[in-house]
């Protein structure tokens, strides 16, 4: 009988054991459980096991500190934001009512520790139109933009949301401008190319790889018409933010140009840019995800392989570029 009672108690307190391990119980419950643990080897072991799982998870998670690149990137973005806020203060924005609605969904009520009277006035649309807005009244604009982008992102997710698709397909960024700029920079480099620094493919690999941090190999494109092949026309280095990328120029007989950017995908995170849509391409029976975007009137196709990022821009239609990007 005693054993039966003990077993039932063990089952009854199973959930409480978890709360016990999580430190969620009040003192009297803790005492009751302590008393039970003192006489029950099984529950003691369960607590020890649960604690070891918890601790292992925590230790593993905290093994990596935030990378320096993340800190640097945030610091840069914060600087940009400070500049934008200053600029925003000088411009009187129109405030469509919808913007405010989006703003409140961007930072949920639970995130709002406090709503100031001026914010409440702003929410009710009572703020005088001519009052020079502070950074805070400029916020709804940024927030509305972010919300719109988030909606775009989730729509894209629906399109490319196959279960096997990589997590990055959920294009995501709520802060777009930095990455839009990145695309602009790449497209700009294609639009107005600077002269090549190296024209020998072997030298390009040897000299550029250590600077870019990933192997830079001018490739022959396999799946393009052979009667008008792409010829390698030289390469140069380019600074993308604080990182180096290699720029490879290609040209065919017809004078059509294509520019390939090779970069360290872990340092230049272009793939998850909000303005990129995912396309699935089948290459030799293997499915590849290519991300596409547009800037300065040029399409851009981005592909990643083993930590090496490739972005292709050119005087081509999007599907052709996607096919080229699938070569990497």
């Amino acid at each position: 009988m005693i054993a039966e009672a003990a077993t039932r108690t063990c089952r009854d307190i199973e959930r409480a054991l978890e709360a016990y391990v999580d430190g969620e119980l009040d003192a009297s419950c803790v005492l009751a459980i302590d008393a039970h643990l003192g006489s029950c080897a099984l529950c003691s072991e369960r607590v020890a096991f649960a604690a070891s799982m918890k601790r292992s998870l925590r230790t593993a998670a905290h093994a990596e500190a935030a990378p320096a690149s993340l800190r640097a990137r945030f610091a840069r973005a914060a600087e940009e934001l400070a500049r934008d806020e200053e600029l925003g203060a000088k411009v009187v924005p129109l405030r469509p009512p919808a913007a405010q609605a989006h703003a409140s969904s961007d930072v949920s009520p639970s995130e709002r520790g406090h709503v100031s009277p001026s914010e409440r006035r702003a929410a009710a649309g009572l703020e005088p139109a001519r009052q020079p807005p502070s950074w805070r009244s400029a916020l709804p604009w940024a927030a509305a933009a972010a919300a719109a982008i988030a909606i775009g992102g989730s729509m894209r997710t629906l399109r490319s949301g196959q279960p096997g698709a990589p997590a990055n397909d959920v294009a995501t960024a709520s802060f777009a401008s930095a990455r839009t700029q990145l695309l602009e920079e790449l497209a700009g480099q294609h639009a107005r190319p600077l002269p090549p620094e190296e024209i020998d493919p072997a030298r390009v690999t040897k000299v550029f790889s250590p600077i870019v941090g990933v192997p830079v190999r001018p490739v022959a494109f396999a799946n393009v018409p052979m009667n008008d092949p792409w010829a390698f026309a030289g390469a140069r280095l380019m600074a993308v933010r604080d990182e180096a990328a290699a720029t490879l120029y290609y040209q065919n007989h017809g004078g059509t140009r294509v520019t390939v950017f090779v970069f360290d995908a872990n340092r230049i995170a272009i793939r998850s840019a909000c303005c990129l849509a995912a396309r699935l391409v089948r290459v030799g029976g293997e499915e590849r995800t290519i991300h596409v975007g547009h800037a300065r009137g040029y399409p851009l196709a981005v592909s990643e392989h083993d930590g090496v990022g490739y972005a292709v821009s050119g005087d081509l239609k999007e599907p052709e570029l996607v096919n080229m990007a699938a070569n990497f």
């Binding site: 998670a61 990378p67 690149s69 993340l70 934001l81 997590a167 995501t172 995170a269 998850s272």
Partner: peptide, 30 residues
């Protein structure tokens, strides 16, 4: 640390933290 556990990819974790941190900075008045 949290983002690394939530996402499966270091790059995505970085993006997530970056976006959240920037959002926090913008919403600091709250």
């Amino acid at each position: 640390a949290v983002a690394r556990r939530l996402t499966r990819d270091a790059t995505v974790a970085e993006d997530l933290v970056h976006d959240a941190a920037l959002k926090a900075l913008k919403a600091r008045g709250q």
